[in-house]
């Protein structure tokens, strides 16, 4: 019996789809059976980021309309064992699916996989309620800026209201240099506001753009800092205890002050 985890954020463009693709691939690389589900009906993207867009024949809509079996709609990723994608329909819109229908799909997938990751659309409307309908747990992705944090706060309130627990936070596009010179919120500020558990910090990594365009998730490359961060989060999801490294790079002045203070 696996876990259904919804990856959500409220605000768009903070890295939900990138996080879903990378965490799904990373979990498969760790030997788990994983299905990533695109819940963004009408605006699907997960297939592109995963590099599987050319192989989609059936979508979750076809499963709901009983056009095909669920197992037939799952697209197998040939680069790694145990990873499949359930795509969203591009020609329908979010109101064509009911939360109960998503829940039925999630329940079936849960019984056959270790992890079911659901890529939620932005917003708090039907798309979000469909995406979270069958979820046991949630991962909230945010960037360290005030508008993303306010939206994440809203989403956390809704998830708590729906009884989804635990809710873990991924702090994405974190820039140690900007925190060091005081122009970005640090992790303590973010956690102070959102007050949920941090499961990982993903540093700003331009490799994400190229990997998205090529359809090869970052975690296939070992060296990139973003890839390492996603691998660590995947290990934490499997229950391993891995400390969150201190990514903050203190400014020169702070370092000098600390040096004097520590003497």
């Amino acid at each position: 019996m696996g876990k259904v985890i919804v990856v959500t954020s409220g605000k768009g463009g903070v890295g939900k789809t990138t996080s879903t693709a990378n965490l799904g691939t990373a979990l498969a690389l760790l030997g788990k059976t994983v299905v990533v589900v695109d819940a963004d009906v009408g605006l699907r993207n997960l297939d592109i980021v995963m590099g599987l867009e050319s192989r989609i024949v059936y979508t979750s809509m076809d499963v709901i309309e009983k056009q095909c079996e669920l197992s037939k709609a799952l697209v197998k990723d040939r680069r790694v064992d145990g990873l499949t994608l359930l795509a969203a329909s591009q020609k329908n819109n979010k109101d064509d699916i009911q939360p109960e229908q998503m829940k039925t799909i999630c329940d079936k997938l849960r019984s056959e996989h270790d992890f079911v990751l659901i890529d939620s659309p932005a917003g708090i409307e039907r798309g979000f309620s469909n995406a979270s309908a069958g979820a046991d747990e949630a991962i909230v992705v945010t960037t360290p800026d005030v508008s993303a944090i306010r939206d994440a706060d809203r989403i956390i309130g809704l998830l708590q209201h729906a009884g989804i627990e635990p809710i873990n936070l991924v702090l994405n596009r974190f820039s140690p240099e900007l925190v060091g010179n005081g122009s970005m919120m640090d992790q303590e500020d973010v956690l102070d506001i959102l007050n949920i558990d941090l499961i990982g910090i993903v540093p700003e990594d331009t490799g994400v753009i190229t990997s998205t365009n090529r359809g090869i998730p970052l975690v296939y490359e070992d060296a990139s800092p973003g890839s390492q961060a996603y691998m660590r989060i995947a290990r934490r999801l499997t229950g391993q205890r891995i400390p969150i490294p201190d990514l903050e790079q203190k400014g020169l002045l702070t370092n000098i002050v600390n040096w004097f203070r520590n003497r």
Binding site: I124, R150, G157, L158, I193
Partner: peptide, 24 residues
């Protein structure tokens, strides 16, 4: 904690919040 989008309304008297009231 009162999170973004939540409203706590109590016209009958005073409110004491054991938490934060977040932006929104």
């Amino acid at each position: 904690t009162i999170r973004s989008g939540q409203i706590e309304d109590f016209p009958q008297g005073s409110l004491v919040i054991y938490g934060d009231v977040n932006s929104g």
